[in-house]
Every structure is written in C-alpha cells, then in structure tokens.
Amino acid sequence: MTTPVFYVHKSGLETTLQDQGRPGFQQYGITESGAMDGFALAMGNFLAGNHPDAPALEITMAGPELEMISACTLALAGGDLGARLNGERLASFTSFYVQPGDRLTFDGPVFGVRTYLTVAGGLIGTKTLGSTATFEKAAMGGIDGRKVRKGDTLTRGSFHKDFKTQAGKRVHADLADHPYEKRPLRVLTGPEWEAFTEDGRRMFLSNGYQVTGQSNRMGYRLHGPDITHEDRADILSDAVPFGTIQVAADGQPMIMMADRQTTGGYTRIGHVITADHPYLAQLKPGDEVTFQLVSMKKAHEALSRQQMACKKFAFARGLT
C-alpha cells in the first residue's frame, strides 16, 4: 500500500531519491550510485523506523519546499541545510511528526551540503535493478529515472511500528558529529603510488587541496600544488571504487564519488578510507582538505567502530 506524503512546491538545487545504491552490476559498466553520505542515510532511516537502505530524499545545498499531505514521521540526517517546519528550526539527526498542510522549507547550508529526508515506511520511486537510487544519465531509479521536480507528489510505503512514537528522537551528538569532525582525510596508497615522483607524493601528503566548483555526485576536482608523475598519468582503464583519488596529467587530484564511472584511466595515488566517506560527502566547493596515510588495519578498525555505533543505535531504536 502506498500513501501520499508530500507535494513539491520547489525542487531545490538537486533533490534526488537515493538508497544505498545498486552494487553488483559494476562488471556490466553500471554505476553504483546511491547516497553520497550512506552513514547519514542509514541514521536518518533508523530515526524514522526504517531499514538503513530505505529510499529517501538526498537534498543538496539549497533545499526544496514541501507541503505535507498526510500525517507521518519524518527525519533529517546529514548536513544542516537550515530546515524549518512551519518556520520552526529543525536540527539535523532528529525525527519529527508532521500533519497535513505543514510546510518544510530550508534556509540554506549551516553545516555540510547534503541532508537526507527520511520518511517512515520509505519513499517510493522507480526501481531499476533492485534499487531506487537516481542515476539520471541512464534514467535509472528516481522518479521515472529523473530528479525530483516541482509538482511531484511523493508517496511512502507502509510500516509496522506505531509511527507517533518515532517522532522527537535524536542521534546522540557524539555519534552524529564524530564522522564530520574536521580532520585530515585518511588514505591508503593506490596501486600507482610508485608512478609519482617522490616530490609529487610529498606534495600530496603535506599540502592542503581545495574542493573546486567542478564537483558533483560523480566526483570532486581538487586544486592545489601539482602532484608530479614520474612518467605517465594514464593507465589502462581499471576499477575506481568510491573514494579513489586519481591524478591526471595536470597534476591535480580528483576523488571519485557515488555516480562515478565503474572504471577510470588515470593513475590512482590513493583511496580515502570508507569511514571518512561521510566527511567527504559533506565537503563543499572552497573547503580545504589534507591527506594522511594510514594502514589498512586502521582503516578497517575505524569502519568497524562506525558500523558498531550504527548497529547499537538501530538496536536501541528496536530495529534489529
């Protein structure tokens, strides 16, 4: 059964339906897509009483204007884009209850660039290859393969819990803020680490790099001191998982994100560890990042801690 939840008066800058993506098809050249900040989507879904993979709105920079059609529990998680319910400020990482006629609006970014609006029961969209994640280039998922736009009415699925009891919940600040604390991005060396000069590698590890305006769901282009190659910047096309840092002949790094192609043709200097992907997903043009090498053991420990914290939270919400 589906129930209309809200009507879209304004779409916002880039509002899409996303879940945790469609892995499993990269061998066919099919992009993974899904939430840029999978941690925030999972927490938002837990707040709304859902499975971590339930489809939600990914809202970027300038949020939409929505009018509620039915009573329901919603939650916001991720960056703080200045959300207001009937003019009252809503904090990120909280759930709230809405009534028909309520208006959800966004002032603009206070922290980060992406927030997830989750809805008890999960939003309903078009499923492509088992996922609702929007990938417009190939018209996959979303609403008939596209972004959310003005005039859309979004519907939700059914849920088991008494949804009134889900409102007014929040994620403890330690857990909600930890992934977003300012710090260097932790990286593992990439397979072409040796393809860079010693000087190039030192530049990469000792300088700040600025996120440029040429940054989107596919990837971020960064700007900073040149990272010089020994010989060639091109490789035979090969896999580039989320967080891979490629450096083309111009010596500037680019970080591959959710809508990246499945393979890339530039030397891979490193990979941002998975536990730092939420931090990466909330960067905006103008932000500066630095890189710090860590061991794979440390990367796995950090990921394990983050996922255990998520699981504990889900458990406390009675969702396991």
């Binding site: 892995p23 499993g24 990269q26 061998q27 096309s237 090969d238 393979t263 796995h300």
Partner: peptide, 22 residues
Amino acid sequence: VIEWIPSYTSVTIMYDPLELPF
C-alpha cells in the same frame, strides 16, 4: 564478496571487510 570488476589486466573484487577479513 559483494561483486567484481574485470578490466584489461585485472579483476577487482569488492568485499565487506567486516564480513571477510582481507
């Protein structure tokens, strides 16, 4: 093991490190 991506000279195997240690 989540999936794998063949290329000209290699196969990249995606895995969940919390389910399958390296």
